[in-house]
Design a protein around this nucleic acid. Structure first.
Lengths: 347, 347
DNA sequence: GAAATCGCTGTAAACGATTACAGCTCCGGA
DNA sequence: TCCGGAGCTGTAATCGTTTACAGCGATTTC
């Protein structure tokens, strides 16, 4: 169907080796020969076959990205960070959002063999041993926010625990005593770390004097929206609600607005992630800033290094700090500080 | 480095052909032999090399996606639509956000040769002939919102013009007479079609009685934010502002809120795209709904069909309708209608 | 003047799979 | 006994590249 190096060689009356040499700029070639070859390549509209090339060079110039899904700003930001860094290093991106059942996920991972030079895996629920079982030995992988895998894989984590405790302490400082928490999906490590931070901070403050108020959620807007009903039924009511991520906080905010509940007057609301819209909604959302796109770039950076270093490289773990971002949704001095646009913009 | 089919064959004391037959379920193989081979494959943790396989089968099971960038909800939604459909059809996604200069874009397109079976291109600014020059003859491509390419490529467009005129007419119906427009980036076809719709609708109404009020923009939030200054300086002031996309409308809204300008009391604001957050901001944004994720899936669907149909397929053009979504940001009866959550959820 | 070097080019072996073809064994039917 | 076919398996070509190696004039070096 499409033109190969052989046809270019024939057209220019040389061997394929010489064509390859010219097109890759390797080895000495007579200028006149080179001219003939370039002309032939151009007139035939020759395009090298990447698959064939990578078979022999053992380089695909492609990085695999494995994610649970592609919905929402978090993933879009993350992918962007990965993309920027990958491109800078000369890599393409093979993206795969992983799937409901484990078999499908395994299939995805296996399908990457021979197509990518390394893998970035955001797998709060994909177990590292599933990875290990379905990848060639010593394959370069960087794990994002994953529970285990120490030793076998490079890991990059976000300080979810620290961020959550900081937020709860902030709310306590503002005078809140009954603080509810909307949880993330069970089994998700980010979610469980944030929950742990919430509990820990409450316990430290109260000496366990009253039970934490925990509501179920799944990181989607809808679940925040739905939580509103339960919250309004609670007796006594909490004065602050801390959602395990921004999407749920936004859903909750939306529900409150529809019912005429005032924020921050009736309830203080806080989220987690500081996704870009967080500062655009009304009231702007107090949140914990996670350097999402930086998380992506750093992981990619690490992966690129790991590929370059070869199989005997050392595995590394790192943790990215989170920062409290105070805006108007929790009242107090939030309003003043929220008066900036895109100030903490992300690289 | 990693185990090949040859090693499995040796381990099971058979030829590579038989191993291949077993693993692909083709041809008759003795049950006992099959058992031995499966055992060997498992114990060696054999994973087929996708690149090698696709070289001989001439199928990569991968679709290429070319985009101008990855920032913002529009692209995230679009990719999601593409991903859902691609996965259903058994394809992976090779994503490439295209680049500043044309040379880089060309390089990207060429690099896809031999790695993908087809291409989805969102290229309001990549010229179709650039594509033609850098792709094998008759390569399956679906163009999204692209100007030319009729005949050579399948095209899928969104009714930008119709959406923009509908919005302007809506504003006029609400009583607005001075309607400003924040433009998108020059050279972008979506942007220019929306501008054309704005002008056309104004002209139809006024018989050209006064000049349109057009402000520069680039589809980013910042440019909407910056437009606020110029708008407040206009004399006489417009009563409504129509931004060429939602991001800019949100930036503008944010700027107004900081300055204490009331929406919709002081200005009516409208956007375009109806990205998911549009309904969560305050006031909820009146917009033109573009079925973004559906745009992605339909393009992918078409691409998959085109690949199956082979090189002699017919090229097709299609246009997706847009719909006016009335919310509170333009006042009037918007408030009532905006009282729903995620009602027009996408796929 | 022979040997070594240099510049250029071609031959052929990889890379890791799939698959057409042929060969072998075994069985049943003529 | 011979033949045909079925069932199973192996040999080798193939996909489109890269690259080690060798070959071959022409030039330089001793």
């Amino acid at each position: 169907m499409s033109v190969t190096i052989r046809e270019v060689a024939r057209e220019a009356s040389v061997s394929v080796a010489t064509v390859s040499r010219v097109l890759n700029g390797k080895g000495p070639v007579h200028p006149e020969t080179e001219r003939r070859i370039r002309k032939a390549a151009k007139s035939l509209r020759y395009i090298p076959h990447g698959g064939a090339r990578s078979l022999i060079t053992r380089k695909t110039s492609t990085l695999g990205v494995l994610m649970p899904e592609l919905y929402g700003e978090f993933f879009s930001e993350l992918i962007r960070g990965i993309d920027v860094c990958a491109r800078r290093a000369g890599y393409h991106l093979l993206v795969s959002s992983s799937h409901s059942d484990r078999a499908e996920t395994e299939e995805m991972i296996r399908a990457m063999r021979g197509r990518v030079d390394g893998l970035v895996v955001l797998s709060p629920d994909v177990r590292p041993n599933v990875l290990k079982a379905n990848l060639p030995e010593k394959f370069p992988v960087v794990l994002l926010n994953s529970a285990g895998g120490r030793g076998s894989f490079d890991c990059l984590n976000v300080d979810n625990f620290g961020g959550a405790t900081a937020m709860v302490r902030h709310l306590i400082r503002l005078g809140h005593r009954r603080i509810a928490f909307i949880q993330g999906p069970t089994g998700n490590r980010d979610a469980s770390e944030r929950l742990r931070g919430y509990r820990e901070a409450l316990r430290a403050q109260n000496g366990g004097s009253f039970a934490p108020l925990e509501l179920p959620g799944n990181f989607r807007e809808e679940s925040g929206y739905e939580a509103s009903r339960k919250i309004l039924e609670l007796k006594p009511r909490p004065s602050a609600i801390f959602a395990a991520n921004d999407s749920m906080a936004i859903g909750l905010l939306c529900a409150f607005q529809e019912r005429g509940v005032q924020v921050p007057e009736d309830f203080a609301i806080a989220g987690f992630d500081d996704i870009p819209i967080a500062r655009y909604i009304t009231p702007p959302l107090t949140s914990v800033r996670v350097p999402i796109s930086e998380l992506g770039s750093q992981a990619t950076q690490r992966l690129v290094e790991a590929i370059a270093a070869g199989p005997e490289r050392a595995r590394r773990q790192a943790m990215l700090p989170t920062t409290l971002v105070v805006r108007a949704s929790c009242g107090e001095n939030g309003r003043a500080r929220s008066r900036r646009l895109a100030s903490s913009g992300d690289g």
